[in-house]
Amino acid sequence: MFTILSSRDPSTIVIDISEKLTGHDAKMLDDYIQGFFDDDQSFNVLAFVPELNGSTLEGFWEGTKVNVKRWKQFSKFAVVTERALIELGTQAAGYLPGLQAQVYKPNQLEEAWNWLKED
């Protein structure tokens, strides 16, 4: 499940992710993107991930569809976590073409915002 939080930057979506990601979460994110960004407009994501227990099958499928649909719009992902497994996943995502991803600790929130604002 995740919650979309208010953002200090109009080109950054801020989300708090916890427990399991569901199909409803993926659809909610896609609806949010559609409501705030044009189809050719890029955006960043700042994700707080204190704990994650995977994804439902529907969540995985719907999330994959959103990722494919929005792939060219994703610019930077800043993930705030203290979980080693989530850090590894984020670092691996940074190797995907066209995507920049960085991991930050909770006490590095300003550094995350600064990185997201860099061109």
Rank of each mutant, 00 (worst) to 15 (best):
P97Q: 07
E82S: 14
L99A: 02
D38F: 00
F77M: 13
W113I: 09
V103S: 04
F74I: 10
V68T: 11
D119C: 03
M1N: 07
G23M: 01
L21Y: 08
D40M: 14
L21W: 11
S11V: 05
I15P: 00
D25E: 07
A112F: 06
G23R: 00
S11A: 13
S75F: 05
V49M: 03
D30F: 00
W61E: 10
N53Y: 13
S55I: 05
E62K: 06
A26F: 01
L5V: 08
F60S: 13
A78Y: 01
Q73N: 14
W113D: 04
E51R: 02
R70F: 05
E111D: 14
Q100D: 11
V66M: 10
K76E: 07
D39A: 14
E87P: 01
E110W: 00
F60K: 07
G54L: 07
I13H: 02
E58A: 15
V49W: 01
P97V: 05
E58V: 08
Y95L: 15
P50K: 00
F2H: 06
S42V: 10
V103F: 06
V45H: 00
L5S: 09
L85T: 13
E58C: 07
T3Q: 12
T22I: 08
D38V: 02
K20D: 09
F36G: 02
V80R: 03
T64C: 04
F37H: 04
E111A: 15
V68W: 05
F48H: 08
Y95K: 14
S11P: 00
T12D: 03
W71M: 00
F60E: 07
V68H: 02
A112M: 02
S75C: 10
N53F: 13
P106L: 05
E51L: 11
L5K: 11
Q100N: 13
Q73T: 09
F43R: 05
F60R: 11
A26R: 01
R83N: 15
V14I: 10
F37L: 07
L88R: 11
P106F: 13
E58F: 03
I15S: 04
L85G: 11
D40F: 09
D119G: 12
